[in-house]
Amino acid sequence: MSAPAAATAAVPSRFKPGDPVAVRQAYPPGHIRTPWYVRGRCGTVVHALGPFPNPEELSYNRSGLPAQPLYRVRFRQTEIWPDYAGNRRDTVDIEIYQHWLEPAGDAR
Protein backbone atom coordinates (compact mmCIF):
# COMPACT_ATOMS: atom_id res chain seq x y z
CA MET A 1 0.00 0.00 0.00
CA SER A 2 1.63 3.25 -1.08
CA ALA A 3 1.45 6.22 1.27
CA PRO A 4 -0.60 9.20 0.11
CA ALA A 5 1.64 11.87 -1.41
CA ALA A 6 0.50 14.42 1.15
CA ALA A 7 1.51 12.16 4.02
CA THR A 8 5.24 12.59 3.67
CA ALA A 9 5.18 14.83 6.73
CA ALA A 10 3.70 12.57 9.35
CA VAL A 11 3.55 12.34 13.11
CA PRO A 12 5.46 9.24 14.34
CA SER A 13 3.18 6.34 15.09
CA ARG A 14 2.65 5.44 18.78
CA PHE A 15 0.54 2.30 18.59
CA LYS A 16 0.58 -1.12 16.99
CA PRO A 17 -2.02 -3.85 16.56
CA GLY A 18 -2.89 -5.42 19.92
CA ASP A 19 -2.28 -2.26 21.93
CA PRO A 20 -5.02 -1.27 24.38
CA VAL A 21 -6.04 2.35 23.85
CA ALA A 22 -8.44 4.87 25.34
CA VAL A 23 -10.24 7.46 23.24
CA ARG A 24 -9.84 10.96 24.65
CA GLN A 25 -12.95 12.29 26.34
CA ALA A 26 -12.74 15.62 24.58
CA TYR A 27 -15.23 17.97 22.99
CA PRO A 28 -13.37 20.34 20.66
CA PRO A 29 -15.37 22.58 18.34
CA GLY A 30 -15.14 22.16 14.58
CA HIS A 31 -15.33 19.18 12.24
CA ILE A 32 -14.52 16.04 14.25
CA ARG A 33 -14.43 12.46 12.94
CA THR A 34 -14.34 10.76 16.33
CA PRO A 35 -17.95 9.81 17.10
CA TRP A 36 -19.39 11.11 20.36
CA TYR A 37 -20.44 7.64 21.46
CA VAL A 38 -16.88 6.32 21.63
CA ARG A 39 -15.18 9.20 23.43
CA GLY A 40 -13.76 8.11 26.77
CA ARG A 41 -14.06 4.40 25.85
CA CYS A 42 -11.34 1.76 25.77
CA GLY A 43 -10.59 -0.57 22.90
CA THR A 44 -7.82 -2.44 21.11
CA VAL A 45 -5.91 -1.42 18.01
CA VAL A 46 -6.60 -3.99 15.27
CA HIS A 47 -4.96 -2.29 12.28
CA ALA A 48 -2.41 0.47 11.84
CA LEU A 49 -3.43 2.07 8.54
CA GLY A 50 -0.60 4.56 8.10
CA PRO A 51 -0.62 8.36 8.05
CA PHE A 52 -3.50 10.41 6.69
CA PRO A 53 -3.94 14.20 6.60
CA ASN A 54 -5.95 15.40 9.59
CA PRO A 55 -9.57 15.98 8.50
CA GLU A 56 -10.09 18.53 11.29
CA GLU A 57 -7.64 20.73 9.36
CA LEU A 58 -8.68 19.66 5.86
CA SER A 59 -12.19 20.83 6.67
CA TYR A 60 -10.85 24.40 6.77
CA ASN A 61 -8.94 23.88 3.51
CA ARG A 62 -5.61 23.60 5.24
CA SER A 63 -3.03 20.92 4.43
CA GLY A 64 -3.84 18.56 7.28
CA LEU A 65 -0.11 18.09 7.77
CA PRO A 66 1.64 16.70 9.61
CA ALA A 67 -0.45 13.66 8.80
CA GLN A 68 -1.88 11.67 11.69
CA PRO A 69 -1.47 7.90 11.92
CA LEU A 70 -4.88 6.31 11.52
CA TYR A 71 -5.96 3.13 13.31
CA ARG A 72 -8.85 0.76 13.25
CA VAL A 73 -9.79 0.29 16.88
CA ARG A 74 -12.09 -2.50 18.07
CA PHE A 75 -14.47 -1.92 20.97
CA ARG A 76 -16.66 -4.42 22.75
CA GLN A 77 -20.27 -3.31 22.47
CA THR A 78 -20.62 -3.83 26.22
CA GLU A 79 -17.77 -1.33 26.79
CA ILE A 80 -19.66 1.34 24.86
CA TRP A 81 -23.22 0.48 25.94
CA PRO A 82 -23.29 -1.14 29.39
CA ASP A 83 -26.86 -2.36 28.76
CA TYR A 84 -26.02 -3.85 25.33
CA ALA A 85 -28.47 -6.62 24.52
CA GLY A 86 -26.59 -9.10 22.36
CA ASN A 87 -23.64 -11.44 22.37
CA ARG A 88 -21.07 -10.07 24.84
CA ARG A 89 -18.42 -10.67 22.16
CA ASP A 90 -20.14 -8.31 19.66
CA THR A 91 -17.86 -5.49 18.62
CA VAL A 92 -17.69 -2.23 16.72
CA ASP A 93 -14.61 -1.23 14.72
CA ILE A 94 -13.95 2.49 14.28
CA GLU A 95 -11.20 4.39 12.46
CA ILE A 96 -9.58 6.85 14.87
CA TYR A 97 -6.72 9.29 14.29
CA GLN A 98 -3.79 9.03 16.67
CA HIS A 99 -4.24 12.43 18.37
CA TRP A 100 -7.51 11.09 19.79
CA LEU A 101 -5.88 8.05 21.40
CA GLU A 102 -4.01 7.48 24.66
CA PRO A 103 -2.38 4.27 25.89
CA ALA A 104 -4.69 2.25 28.16
CA GLY A 105 -3.72 -0.35 30.69
CA ASP A 106 -6.81 -2.45 30.35
CA ALA A 107 -9.07 -2.62 27.34
CA ARG A 108 -11.44 -5.06 29.06
Binding site: F52, R74, G86, N87, D90, T91, V92, D93, I94, E95
Partner: peptide, 9 residues
Protein backbone atom coordinates in the same frame (compact mmCIF):
# COMPACT_ATOMS: atom_id res chain seq x y z
CA UNK B 1 -20.09 -12.30 16.74
CA UNK B 2 -21.70 -9.28 15.09
CA UNK B 3 -18.98 -6.81 14.12
CA UNK B 4 -20.13 -3.35 13.08
CA UNK B 5 -17.78 -1.11 11.09
CA UNK B 6 -18.35 2.62 11.51
CA UNK B 7 -16.80 4.32 8.45
CA UNK B 8 -15.49 7.39 10.20
CA UNK B 9 -12.41 8.19 8.13
Amino acid sequence: EVRVHDSTA
